[in-house]
C-alpha cells in the first residue's frame, strides 16, 4: 500500500464511486467472487415472498379452524387447578416444582440469558462458521447430548414425582430448595463435560454439546409442564388432563 490512495481513486474522472474509508482486516466477501453471488432481485425476494405467502396461508387456515381461547371472567377467588403460566413459560414452572422459587424463576433464567449472550465471546474460532453442527464430530456430540439430557431429565422428573427429594430430606429448606438442585445441575453438567471429552472436541464442539443440552432441556420441560401436568401440577398423561390445563 505504498501508493497514494488519491492516485488510485482520482477525482473528477466521471466515476460514480468514492473512497469512503480505509479499514484493516478482510471484508466478509474476501475469497468470494461474483460467481458465488446472485442478484437479490429476483432470487432473494422471491424466496422471501414465498416464505411470507406460506406463513399467511398457514396462519389463515389455523385461525379459521381453531378459535383463540376465552374462559370465564377473571375471578381472584376461584383458583384454576392447575394454575399454569402461558405455555412458553411452562419450562420455568416445571423447574419451580423441583427447587426454591428464586432459583427456578429468577436466578437460573437470568444466568442462562447471560451465558447465552456470552457464547460468541467464549468461542472465537471462525473455521466452522456456516456449517451445521460444525463437523461430523459436532453432529455426533449434539446427538449424544440430546439422548443424555432426555434420559436424565425424564429420570429426574419421575424421581421427584414418585420418590420426592422432599420426602427424603425436608429440613433445612436449603437442602431440597437450593443445594440438591444445584448439585444435580452442576454434577450432570460436569458429567456431560467429561463424557464429551472422549471425542477430543474443540471449544466450538463442546459448546454445541452444552447448547444442545440447553435446547433439549428447554423444549422437554415445556412439553412435560404443558402436556403432562394435571391437577395440583402432578404428573398425568395428556389424555387425562383436566380441562383448562393447556394454556395456549
Amino acid at each position: 500500500m505504498s501508493k497514494d490512495p488519491r492516485q488510485l481513486f482520482p477525482r473528477g474522472s466521471g466515476q460514480r464511486y468514492g473512497l469512503m474509508e480505509l479499514v484493516k482486516g478482510t471484508s466478509p466477501m474476501v475469497g468470494k467472487g461474483p460467481e458465488d453471488t446472485v442478484m437479490s432481485w429476483p432470487h432473494l425476494l422471491i424466496m422471501e415472498v414465498l416464505a411470507i405467502l406460506g406463513t399467511t396461508v398457514l396462519l389463515l387456515f389455523w385461525s379459521l379452524a381453531i378459535n383463540a381461547p376465552l374462559r370465564e371472567f377473571a375471578n381472584p377467588d376461584v383458583t384454576e387447578n392447575p394454575a399454569k403460566a402461558a405455555w412458553y413459560f411452562m419450562q420455568l414452572q416445571e423447574i419451580l416444582l423441583h427447587m426454591h422459587p428464586a432459583l427456578a424463576g429468577v436466578i437460573i433464567p437470568v444466568v442462562m440469558v447471560i451465558v447465552l449472550m456470552a457464547l460468541p465471546y467464549i468461542d472465537r474460532s471462525r473455521e466452522d462458521i456456516g456449517i451445521w453442527f460444525a463437523s461430523k464430530k459436532g453432529r455426533k456430540i449434539a446427538l449424544f447430548s440430546t439422548v443424555y439430557t432426555t434420559i436424565w431429565l425424564i429420570g429426574l422428573i419421575l424421581f421427584d414425582e414418585y420418590i420426592r427429594v422432599r420426602s427424603l430430606i425436608q429440613e433445612p429448606e436449603i437442602w431440597p430448595g437450593w443445594l440438591i438442585p444445584l448439585a444435580v445441575i452442576f454434577g450432570l453438567s460436569a458429567l456431560l463435560y467429561f463424557l464429551l471429552r472422549r471425542w477430543r472436541p474443540t471449544t466450538r464442539e463442546m459448546l454445541i454439546g452444552f447448547f444442545t443440552a440447553f435446547v433439549v432441556t428447554y423444549i422437554l420441560l415445556t412439553i412435560v409442564g404443558l402436556f403432562f401436568r394435571g391437577l395440583g401440577m402432578h404428573l398425568t398423561l395428556p389424555w387425562n388432563l383436566p380441562p383448562g390445563a393447556l394454556t395456549f
Partner: peptide, 14 residues
C-alpha cells in the same frame, strides 16, 4: 379471563 388472570398471577408471583 380466568386463563389470563391465573397465568399472569403465577408469572408475577415468580
Amino acid at each position: 379471563d380466568q386463563l389470563a388472570y391465573w397465568a399472569v398471577t403465577v408469572g408475577t408471583n415468580m
